[in-house]
């Protein structure tokens, strides 16, 4: 953390419409992670290889990406599969089990693509600002519009 950066002020990058997918259907956790990956691809943040790398993280290490009750933070390593830093948000019409001991079932999947490890702490701090409020996951799961999701995340609409 740099000296002049206050993590309490961190804000998320603008969220394009294509980065937000509401009430999607997923048969299993792979589907759910791929939906978050597809949204990252759709908004130009990552390639399809990044999506498969996100799935592989869970295949290799288990369901640790389910970091809070109802929430999966899908991500893989920074690399050439990431075109630019970005987030996607997917809510699931039907909750999906990832096999996590405490935090299943998942209703919200956040896809995270970062270009370089050091640069990502701002968006991660912004995610903490939002989700340290324990009501945020439920509120996003229940959102019926993209603007509701942006409001909860305190993320702007991108300039068009």
């Amino acid at each position: 953390m740099t000296d002049n950066f206050d993590p309490a002020d961190a804000a998320l990058p603008p969220l394009a419409d294509r980065a937000i997918v509401l009430q999607a259907r997923a048969d299993d956790w792979r589907d759910a992670v791929r939906l978050a990956g597809d949204a990252l691809v759709d908004c130009g943040c990552a390639t399809t290889e990044y999506t498969e790398a996100m799935v592989r993280m869970v295949d290799d290490h288990g369901p640790y990406i389910v970091i809070a009750p109802g929430l999966a933070l899908a991500h893989a390593r920074p690399g050439p599969e990431v075109r630019r830093d970005g987030l996607s948000v997917v809510t699931l019409a039907t909750p999906v089990s990832f096999g996590h001991a405490h935090n299943d079932p998942v209703r919200v999947v956040i896809g995270l693509a970062v270009h370089a490890p050091d640069a990502h702490l701002t968006s991660v701090a912004a995610l903490a600002n939002v989700f340290n409020d324990s009501s945020a996951i439920q509120a996003i799961a229940d959102a019926t519009s993209r603007d509701q999701v942006r409001d909860i995340l305190d993320a702007r609409r991108p300039a068009s």
Partner: peptide, 17 residues
Amino acid sequence: CGAGIGSSGILKVNAER
């Protein structure tokens, strides 16, 4: 964490707080 970003980043930020 598995990637050294993302979930471990959240842990770092919240541990510092």
